[in-house]
Computed example of a mutant assay.
Amino acid sequence: MRLILLGPPGAGKGTQSARLEQKYGIPQLSTGDMLRAAVKAGTPIGLQAKAVMESGGLVSDEIVIGIIADRIDAPDCAKGFILDGFPRTVAQAEALTKLLKAKGKDLSAVIELLVDDGVLLSRIENRARETLAAGGTVRADDNPDAFKKRLAQYHQQTAPVSDYYKGIGELRTVDGMAPIDEVTKQLDALLAH
């Protein structure tokens, strides 16, 4: 099972990915984690990424796709994987489609968690309040101003990825505003087909 979960920050992708990972025995692949692992392992693509990162640049789509290409060939991905946070752009989505086709693999599902921006902002504010009340440290990106910037960036760069997958007939949606267990049930129902 090869999945992509789409949705804005705070939509619940991480929560649902963890549940899917446990249920199906497939890894959740984070591009950030994969980049760091490739750099640490000193793979050829990891060395390219390291040079770019050390110079303060953004890692190119070509390097990210190369890292994903290596990662999805790992033994723990034999039964599939979950991509959360990738692809972030239509160019990345197109490159991923070509990569999977070249490997003779298809996506099982591309699922978008549909959510309301106003409710997301409330969720983030509540999460920050609850964290502070519990004596914890609030994530730097969990303040309203930073979250609004992340949300705007998502709508500008990443939301068109949904249109790409819709255009090729692969996009499915679930109500990300539902309670967590209900979102899980909706995902299970989609994946059962």
Rank of each mutant, 00 (worst) to 15 (best):
L114V: 15
V90F: 11
V90L: 13
L114S: 14
F86N: 00
V138M: 01
A51F: 05
A78T: 03
L120I: 12
K50E: 15
K149N: 01
A128C: 05
C77H: 03
F147K: 03
R88K: 06
H155F: 04
T131V: 11
D142P: 10
G118V: 04
A152N: 05
V59Y: 01
L47K: 13
Y154R: 00
N126T: 12
H155G: 05
I111R: 09
V90H: 12
D116K: 10
V110K: 07
A49Q: 08
L107K: 02
A133G: 06
A74E: 15
D70C: 03
A109H: 08
E94M: 10
L107F: 06
V64D: 10
A128P: 03
G136T: 03
K105D: 06
D145R: 06
D73P: 11
E112V: 12
P75R: 09
G118T: 10
G80C: 09
V138G: 02
G57Q: 11
E112F: 07
V119I: 14
F81D: 01
V119S: 10
Q48V: 12
E94N: 07
A74G: 10
F86Q: 00
K149G: 00
R127I: 02
P87N: 12
S122D: 15
A146H: 03
V110P: 13
L120V: 08
A95D: 01
I124S: 11
A109W: 02
S108N: 11
Q92T: 01
A51D: 13
D76V: 04
V52T: 14
A51Q: 12
K148A: 15
L99W: 03
L114H: 09
I111C: 14
L113S: 12
A140C: 05
K79S: 15
P87G: 12
K148R: 11
V59K: 01
A78D: 04
A78Q: 05
R127T: 01
S55L: 09
F147A: 09
Q157W: 03
A91Y: 08
V115W: 13
I45T: 14
A93E: 10
T137R: 05
R139W: 04
A49V: 08
D116Y: 06
S55A: 15
D70P: 04
A49E: 10
E125Q: 14
L100I: 02
D84K: 07
T97V: 14
L151D: 06
E94H: 03
C77Y: 02
A133N: 08
D73M: 15
L121E: 15
I72N: 11
D145Y: 03
I45L: 08
L107R: 01
P144W: 02
S60F: 04
V115H: 06
I82L: 10
Q153G: 08
F81M: 02
E125D: 13
E130I: 07
V110H: 07
G66W: 00
L151S: 04
G104R: 02
L83W: 07
D76N: 10
D116N: 14
S60E: 09
L121D: 15
V52D: 11
R139D: 15
A74N: 12
R127Y: 00
G135P: 05
A93Q: 07
P144Y: 01
A102C: 06
D116Q: 13
K98H: 12
A91G: 10
R71E: 06
